[in-house]
Design a protein around this nucleic acid. Sequence first.
DNA 1: TCATTTCCGACTAGATTCGTCGGGATTCAA
DNA 2: TTGAATCCCGACGAATCTAGTCGGAAATGA
Lengths: 147, 147
Amino acid sequence: MRVSTRGEYGVRAMFDLALNYGNGPIPLKAVAKRQLVSETYLEQLLGALRRAGLVSSTRGAQGGYELAHPPERITVGQIIRVLEGPITPLDCLDTDSGSGPYCGQPDQCVLRGLWKNLQDSMERVLDNTTLEDLRSKAIRLGVAQGQ
Amino acid sequence: MRVSTRGEYGVRAMFDLALNYGNGPIPLKAVAKRQLVSETYLEQLLGALRRAGLVSSTRGAQGGYELAHPPERITVGQIIRVLEGPITPLDCLDTDSGSGPYCGQPDQCVLRGLWKNLQDSMERVLDNTTLEDLRSKAIRLGVAQGQ
DNA sequence: TCATTTCCGACTAGATTCGTCGGGATTCAA
DNA sequence: TTGAATCCCGACGAATCTAGTCGGAAATGA
């Protein structure tokens, strides 16, 4: 039931880019330093987020990364899905095509309801929290580190 | 964001014991067969659940396992915690004694709120679903395998 | 041309997961 | 008292996942 560091660091990095949204590309090095994440590791994560269309990059000197959309249009759920795969407690909830609604055993549809409830409640939180929500809260608390 | 097989199989086994609650000890072998779980693996899980006080066991011939409390007094959250540890997306949410409310970085208290929301919503589902809920639903659906 | 920066694939050490295995202890029943 | 059924326990192991590192190529602005 844990988020791995991929998801955790990825959200931190995206939060950082949200705070700096509108200031042009931000070098990975700056994000890594502020968010206390290894540069080489973060490179992997931002690469995946770029390929998924959540950030855009500019190469070369004065280059860097920026959000591909305004902060209010990017949710934490999107970020987690790119970095950790589907948000689901059990794989069979997503691939119900393969094993049918019963997961192979009739009584499992009882337990399936349980796991589905859990999935829904996780997705409800993650899909309804945008980077803008996090940004405005940071500003309200006065912890937004500019640029 | 996944439940491991420990949690999944553990819930299945406890669900099975709930369906058979009141019939005396049920041998592990029977549970394993009905729930399609390896006997030797399930032995590990039921051992942990016994040490945690959720099931009781009777040794020797005609022995087996049974719920240590009525099904309405055992929640899925209890089972998961025994088999997978604390229900939390990030370790720092539980051990806030160590690193303080800021997790080392001031702006993390913003993200902390996000992860706390996620944790709360997971716990709400798991702690409010009892084995009796699952049992009565199984009976309603007619999928409860007797004995 | 040079420093900066992204991009890419390969690699690795360690932890975790998902079990298996062998044997011991206990209990009931014949 | 013997034997089958059953729980109990610790050690072991293969496969997978996690959390990165590393080396170098390509692009870009000054």
